[in-house]
Amino acid sequence: MRFNRMLLSTVLVVVALVLQVCVLARLQLPGAVPDLMLLTVLGLALVYGHVGGAFVGFGAGLLADLAPPADHAAGRYALVLCVIGYLAGLAKPESGQLRSAAGPMLVVVGAAVGTTLLYAGVGALVGDTAARDVGLGSLIFTAALYDLLLAPFVVPGVMALARRAENDPLGESSGGSAKAADVSSGWLSGGGTGLSIGGGQRGGLRMKSVKARASRAGRIKGVKRL
Score class of each variant (00 low, 15 high):
150 L>V: 09
195 L>P: 00
25 A>Y: 10
217 A>P: 02
58 F>N: 03
25 A>F: 08
172 E>W: 14
26 R>E: 09
223 V>C: 11
74 A>T: 13
62 L>C: 11
48 Y>D: 09
64 A>L: 14
163 R>C: 00
35 D>P: 01
96 G>F: 10
186 G>S: 06
94 E>M: 13
184 S>K: 01
203 G>P: 01
56 V>E: 03
58 F>G: 04
22 C>A: 14
92 K>E: 11
59 G>H: 06
138 S>A: 07
140 I>L: 09
133 D>F: 01
125 L>N: 06
59 G>S: 14
33 V>N: 04
207 M>R: 15
93 P>Y: 15
41 V>W: 06
214 A>Y: 12
167 N>Q: 12
215 S>P: 00
50 H>S: 15
52 G>R: 03
161 L>W: 01
111 A>V: 08
28 Q>C: 00
41 V>N: 06
202 R>Y: 11
50 H>F: 13
72 H>N: 06
45 A>I: 11
14 V>M: 09
129 T>S: 03
207 M>A: 15
61 G>S: 10
113 V>N: 00
193 T>L: 12
130 A>M: 05
210 V>S: 11
221 K>T: 15
206 R>L: 15
132 R>M: 03
84 I>F: 06
81 L>H: 09
123 G>R: 05
220 I>N: 08
182 D>L: 12
71 D>S: 10
63 L>M: 15
174 S>Y: 12
13 V>C: 07
184 S>Y: 01
213 R>F: 11
37 M>V: 13
161 L>P: 00
10 T>R: 01
180 A>L: 05
218 G>C: 13
213 R>V: 15
65 D>E: 08
212 A>Q: 13
42 L>M: 10
180 A>D: 05
118 L>M: 12
52 G>L: 10
212 A>G: 09
4 N>R: 06
211 K>T: 14
91 A>L: 10
185 S>P: 00
66 L>P: 05
48 Y>V: 04
203 G>M: 12
216 R>L: 15
44 L>A: 08
67 A>W: 15
160 A>T: 08
26 R>F: 02
211 K>P: 01
171 G>D: 14
112 A>F: 07
32 A>S: 09
144 A>H: 01
129 T>M: 01
11 V>M: 08
128 D>Q: 08
152 P>Y: 10
10 T>E: 04
36 L>T: 03
178 A>Y: 10
186 G>T: 05
47 V>D: 06
186 G>A: 12
155 V>R: 00
59 G>D: 05
177 S>K: 06
48 Y>L: 11
147 D>L: 02
191 G>C: 03
131 A>T: 00
76 R>S: 11
220 I>S: 10
204 G>V: 15
167 N>W: 06
57 G>Y: 10
187 W>P: 00
216 R>P: 02
113 V>S: 02
79 L>Y: 06
68 P>F: 13
224 K>R: 14
130 A>L: 11
190 G>S: 03
33 V>K: 04
60 A>M: 10
128 D>G: 02
207 M>Q: 15
192 G>P: 00
219 R>F: 09
128 D>V: 10
164 R>T: 04
31 G>R: 00
147 D>Q: 06
184 S>R: 08
39 L>K: 03
116 T>W: 03
9 S>L: 03
149 L>Q: 00
81 L>V: 08
219 R>V: 12
53 G>E: 07
70 A>H: 12
64 A>M: 13
48 Y>K: 02
208 K>F: 14
149 L>W: 05
10 T>Q: 01
184 S>A: 11
36 L>E: 01
